[in-house]
Design a protein around this nucleic acid. Sequence first.
DNA 1: GATTACTGCAACCACATAGTTGCATTAACC
DNA 2: GGTTAATGCAACTATGTGGTTGCAGTAATC
Lengths: 105, 105
Amino acid sequence: MTTSILVPVFAALGDETRWSILVALGEEDASASALAGRLPVTRQAIAKHLAVLQEVGLVESVRVGRELRYRVLGSQLSETAKRLDRIGAQWDRRLAAIKRIAEDL
Amino acid sequence: MTTSILVPVFAALGDETRWSILVALGEEDASASALAGRLPVTRQAIAKHLAVLQEVGLVESVRVGRELRYRVLGSQLSETAKRLDRIGAQWDRRLAAIKRIAEDL
DNA sequence: GATTACTGCAACCACATAGTTGCATTAACC
DNA sequence: GGTTAATGCAACTATGTGGTTGCAGTAATC
């Protein structure tokens, strides 16, 4: 169970502003400056958030002319979801087993 | 897309110690004191973490005699995983659409 | 009923981080 | 080539939070 790699991803997802950024990027790719126009925080704050998101593989960047355009990576989210589901199912199996034993008494 | 409810769950999952607690509880139900015996943090720290986890529905507690025993809830994890996967798939669909358009040119 | 073992609460500390402002830099575009 | 509009970097602030210690409360157990 390789949870250690997952934790930073969750930490990245555990912030409202970062979700706003992800949702905005989910609609269309954008630069930090462009995002700053839509969100109630400065460009620099957004740049920091994008660095965090890129670090854990939730976004990637591409240079387009003089701007750095960011793109959201749904695959990383789906991958994380799969692992989560597996762990959750495992825990539920144990619970079910306990209930079964209790009923057998 | 109701992400607002998800964010606190991810924030809760974005901490190594809390994962240690969840993993320990995944093996068997335990009280804060019992967990303190296994993990390198004090009981009080663990109690705070359990409060956070309970707040977002990742664990529940049951009184057993004079101890408060905690149990991990895999269902909440699976539910979160489902939502994550849906969002990730949506983002990937958009990306795929863009690629399709690019190839059509 | 006294002891024991657990939980609950409060104050406090240190560090991380979300946010800001300000300035330097770099690359398009006219 | 100068202007403009983007990014990059640094310093600083404030707040949140993970962690601690210490003590009070409470409920089993002998």
